[in-house]
Design a protein around this nucleic acid. Sequence first.
RNA 1: AGGCCCGUAGCUCAGUUGGUUAGAGCGCUACGUUGACAUCGUAGAGGUCAGCGGUUCGAGUCCGCUCGGGCCUACCA
Length: 892
Amino acid sequence: MSKDAMTTAEPRPPMDKRFDPESYEPRLAAWWHERDFFRGDADDPRESFCIMIPPPNVTGKLHMGHALQTALQDLLTRWKRMQGYNALWVPGTDHAGIATQLMVERALAEEGTSRREIGRAAFVERCWRWKQEYHDNIRRQLLRLGASCDFSRERFTMDEGLSRAVTEAFVRLHREGLIYRGEYMVNWSPQLDTAVSDLEVEMKTVAGKLYHVAYPVEGSDERIVVATTRPETMLGDTAVAKHPDDERYRHLTGRAAILPLVGRRLPFVDDEVVEREFGTGLVKVTPSHDPADFEIGKRHDLPRVEVIGRDGRMTARSGDFAGLDRFEARRQVVERLRAEGWLVKVEDYTHNVGHSQRGGEPVEPLVSLQWFCDVEGMARRALAAVEDGRLALVPESWVKTWEHWLGNIKPWCISRQLWWGHRIPAFSDREGRVHVARDIEEAARQAGVAPEELTQDGDVLDTWFSSGLWPFSTLGWPDDTADLRAFHPTDVLVTGHDILFFWVARMAMFGLHFTDDVPFRTVHLTGLVRDADGVKMSKTKGNVLDPLDLAAEYGADALRFTLSILDAPGRDIPMDLERMAGYRGFCNKIWNATRFALARIGEDDRVQTAIDPAELAAPERWILARLSATAAEVDARFGEYRFDEACNRLYHFFWGELCDWYIELAKPALFGDAPRPRVGDVLLTVLDHALRLLHPVMPFLTEELWHRLPGREALHPETIALAPYPERVPAWEDAATEERMAALIEAVTRLRALRADLEVPPAEAVAVTLRADDEATSAFLAEQAPLVAALVRASSVTVAAPAEGAARDLVAGIELGLVAPRRELGAVERERLEAELGKLAGEIAAAEGRLANEQFLAKAPPAVVAGNRARLAELVERRERIRAGLEAGAEG
RNA sequence: AGGCCCGUAGCUCAGUUGGUUAGAGCGCUACGUUGACAUCGUAGAGGUCAGCGGUUCGAGUCCGCUCGGGCCUACCA
């Protein structure tokens, strides 16, 4: 099939009774990208709109969270593109250091080998092959979901350009003194065999034990008692701490305890962090294996005795316990303490223990030589950017969390003892001096040695270091590129709140530091996609949904619409398949409404670019007014990231106002029973607008249908994606018609209810009367009588007082009368009216009470008081009509 | 330990700055193939807005407390 075969000039296949997304979605996705509609142009003079995709990890396929973010990013991009912005959405993927390395290691294990066995170069090569495979998958999935991103600009965090940006950022920060290397306590994951950052540690509440251990005091018979949850670390104790003001232990100042099992002398030190109320108020100090103790150790210049190694086993310095796993060592230490009489008591104790997010095992706090980034200054700028409004968080409730985290930030451990990632650009010479430089040649010049004498640091950088540069590294930074000038700062970032600190905060900090500007103006934080019962999706629970399966079953449009309408601020998203089936029904409704219109319009009817309501009848004026209001509201809601409300409005406009009412109102005219001017033109024009309004949410269906509308070429010759987004049309607004039509709709609904109450069979016609007090409304009712007759299946609709024995009611100022041949006011109707009278009595009493209250009259705004008066009058009148109806019924 | 969010119909959720009668979808009930759609149409039932107290002429909405659920941050060993 040639490209032309898919262009709009070709007739499309006849429309089936049911829409079949599979028949056009993949075709349109391919066509869009072949035709290159979504390329951003740095030289385009129009205002730009840019979104950077949160790069999915190349570890697997896209999950529901990606689908949600893809839907919303595409919605925004398509919306802005149609509004005439120079829109660009840049796709890409993340190398995901630890995650990918683990996957590849697992694959190797299945082959009976390991990364150590095959060596670093071969391992990294395997990672690249892995990346290619999953990257291609992700690209296919984005296409399938209808993503209108510019694939010509697709990036990967480890491609050449981005790697250069990483090196440049590292070198600059190092020269500014913000990156340094040092021995500090870090979170060590023995399973992953690497350090991880504070953020990669998950606190879990675990049921453990609190061991109370007696330590003898040197040169006396006194024993003090300390408590610990980790007895194995006592082998590395080098002091006992007490609070400086603790009178109970004043006599211990300057003295020392003796460490049981080991015999080491532990001086008593005074430190403010000791809580006097906890336990005995004395704390064993293990500077090598506890973050708090590490700090105490630094303050008091205590020696560090490392008894647990990087493999999670006890070191040679642990004496008899050397070689034991840390948890086995705990058991054996406790046994020895008990045997030797040092164990005072053991209590059950629930406490929080840090676990490695990826590895799953408890992290081991260890002192090691790592690279750190001092982010305090950058954090202050990121805080200020949110405070002064340059960077908006949506929903705003995240601002406090942002402030709390950035206000208490600590140095970021950025080195990882992994093989997959960006190698740290630091080179050691033979004397062990370290030279940070962009490449080995630059390092050699700095060191004044030959490149061969240098060896590069074996560690790689935390994945989030490169992700932190994403919004501008993807546009060519550190070079001053046309893309960077045209599209940076980007406009919106759409991402899950779970990576606010990992990623969003780092981008804000790096962006402000390196480009002196925010990397994006708005961050829209989404909830997490859960299953229908609100349970987090996980493989072990078996409740994981695959977006591609859903796209196949429901259509990508229904999936996107469901995700968008469920994106309420500050809430997680319960993914309900029944609900999605409902929105698939909505797609079908749109399909069939269009099918109906195309089958019924006249030969010369066309989509209009301008239409004058003055030449139209009331139903046409009404739907155009509703359309204008809808366009205005949708635009406003998109603008404030209320995708849920925008989609709700679109749903109710299309299904409720257009299908349920306007199309029904148009039928008598379309079938020639009661011709009205330009009904076909109006119907096509409204459909065109509705499809364009829906396009950002349902790109496929709207594209497919729009091409069938005669006359739509005037808006764009090729694609709805580049047609203008509908706006409010002041000339279509018509409050008087809206009010009258609203009353008419209410009257019809009420008359149908009366029919149902009287149990009139659907095929049986009734006689209807309508009456209004004012002449204008009466004239309007007379004019619309045939329509009312069609909608309520009436043999006659006259403007008159209710006939003798008619069922009556009053809605929106219209007095209704309905007579069904051979039907009297039945028990059902009587019962309903009695109930209605009871309810009215309550409402009338409430309104009268309010209006009798002088405080209310004095303090409430006049409009509210007037509203209450009008309301009361209407309630009373309605009560009178219903009473009259009941009496007439009783007589008849 | 601190912070944030949530509690509205059987279920999942909306409800803008306090203002007349609290909404939607699904589910449920009754009826229905008149010329697009049974992935449909028409009508309907269903809520003391978690509880208590306060502010106010007026509170689902604002304030305080209690109970219940979730999330985030945190060096009490």
